[in-house]
Design a protein around this nucleic acid. Structure first.
Length: 423
DNA sequence: CCTGTGAGCTGGGAATCGAG
DNA sequence: CTCGATTCCCAGCTCACAGG
């Protein structure tokens, strides 16, 4: 494998060069001092360039406030932003087949693109869709006052390790209200917004959440674990005013959205397609309709998404067990490639001529599995051209010491994005 | 003995932002 | 500037066991 510097970069990737040019891309991404390094990987009879630099760092993580909902394993908004900006124009359609909390489509909508989102877990739409229709805070406040609260209500399972009884009754009242509105078809944007915010305020480790101190909201805590945490910290759940918390978070979510961005989001939301399908079979998406796909699939079987979201699923009356049966969890790389090969065939069908796929994978199993190299042949087999692999190298400042994990030893320490083009 | 598999186990703190 | 709230900060690790 040879390594060269600053040569032979395709024009459309020119912005990745950090020693030249100006504009938003350069100010937002990349380390100018580091410079872009290029190496070539031989995959079958293809010589694929890898562009290596620090395109986005922890210091650059600040993005639009509208993204700030917690969800396990989602990429920074700067990742889709970069590709949307570079490879699409206003009005183009941007798609994410593994949409999760909706980072790609929200960012695309904010930037005036049309969007299609898919995720097998219905929680994804619940968290994404409401953020296309930004409500007036006064309406949120008014609605919160109108929702009936019954102090005697309790969850059907024991949640006393997380919530004060009065908080729990508020949560269950809200859960019941939303379910009833939804089932009767009378749910509006304000209801959906409140549900989205509440889903994100269930547990966390600050007073801005409904629960007693748990772990941060992107980490699942089981009731049994929470009992131990409570013992260790000598804590018991205090009352939390759910209405106040929902209103406060609502305010913070929309705090730096401009009028234009709200308008863009609304327009994108109105024409948006939200699917809850297996990413291999998305027949409702027309042939050749997508200009750009930015996505990050599940990496093998490392994260148990439905289990991770057990409480959020409960709050939204979703059967987490049912979902977990539908989620494809590939244990081996071969099995994973089989599934993703089909996903790529579907992506090829829906991608417009001249359109792109930016397919992000991280390293798993201590870097022993280089998923990016496995992805290249899958895209090629589906009919795409592989235009290169972008590697975001980052000195992570990870702070999780839960298992004695040190920075840059475990977890995902690089973003590896494989770029495909449909000629 | 080596490798793959699946069940079971693990639980805080540093960095950053922004309100005051 | 200070201080408190908040943050896509672990896509994990270990070990027993089966089968080659």
């Amino acid at each position: 494998m040879q390594t060269t510097r600053q040569i032979d970069i395709p024009r459309y990737l020119a912005e990745f060069r950090l020693d030249e040019g100006t504009g938003e891309n350069l100010s937002l991404f990349g380390d100018k001092k580091r410079g872009t390094e290029i190496e070539y990987v031989q995959i079958d009879d293809h010589r694929i360039p890898r562009y290596i630099n620090e395109y986005w760092t922890s210091g650059q993580r600040q993005a639009s406030s509208i993204h700030e909902v917690s969800y396990r394993a989602c990429f920074k908004p700067q990742v889709p932003h970069f590709f949307i900006d570079l490879l699409t124009q206003e009005g183009d359609t941007v798609y994410d087949p593994f949409s999760g909390r909706g980072t790609t489509v929200i960012e695309a909508g904010r930037l005036g693109r049309r969007v299609i989102a898919n995720d097998v877990n219905p929680l994804s739409e619940i968290l994404s869709r409401p953020r296309f229709f930004i409500p007036d805070l006064k309406d949120v406040e008014k609605r919160l006052e109108e929702i009936p609260y019954y102090s005697s209500l309790r969850a059907e399972m024991d949640l006393s390790m997380f919530f004060h009884p009065d908080t729990e009754s508020e949560i269950v009242s809200l859960k019941n209200y939303i379910l009833e509105k939804r089932q009767s078809g009378r749910e509006d944007h304000v209801d959906s917004w409140i549900r989205m915010v509440a889903t994100n305020r269930l547990t966390g480790h600050s007073p801005g959440f409904f629960s007693v101190y748990t772990l941060p909201p992107n980490q699942a805590v089981s009731p049994e674990r929470q009992i131990k945490i409570n013992e260790k910290r000598h804590q018991k759940p205090e009352y939390r005013d759910t209405r106040k918390i929902i209103l406060k978070k609502s305010k913070s979510l929309i705090k730096n959205l401009t009028r234009k961005e709200k308008e863009n989001l609304r327009k994108a939301g109105e024409s948006a397609l939200f699917l809850t399908e297996d990413a291999r079979y998305t027949g409702r998406i027309p042939d050749g309709s997508v200009q750009l796909t930015v996505t990050s699939p599940p990496f093998l079987d490392v994260v148990q998404y439905s289990q991770d979201n057990w409480l959020r699923c409960w709050f939204n009356s979703i059967d987490a067990e049912e979902i977990s049966k539908k989620i494809t969890m590939s244990r081996t790389v071969e099995e994973w490639c089989g599934v993703m090969g089909d996903v790529f065939r579907e992506l090829f069908r829906i991608t417009r001529k001249g359109g792109w796929v930016a397919f992000e994978v991280g390293e798993v199993r201590g870097g022993s599995v280089k998923l990016d190299e496995h992805v290249v042949p899958l895209g090629l087999a589906a009919g795409f051209e592989c235009e290169g692999i972008l590697i975001n190298l980052q000195e992570f400042t990870k702070t999780s010491n839960i298992w004695g994990i040190n920075n840059n030893t475990c977890g995902t320490n690089t973003n590896r994005i494989v770029m495909f083009k449909k000629l």
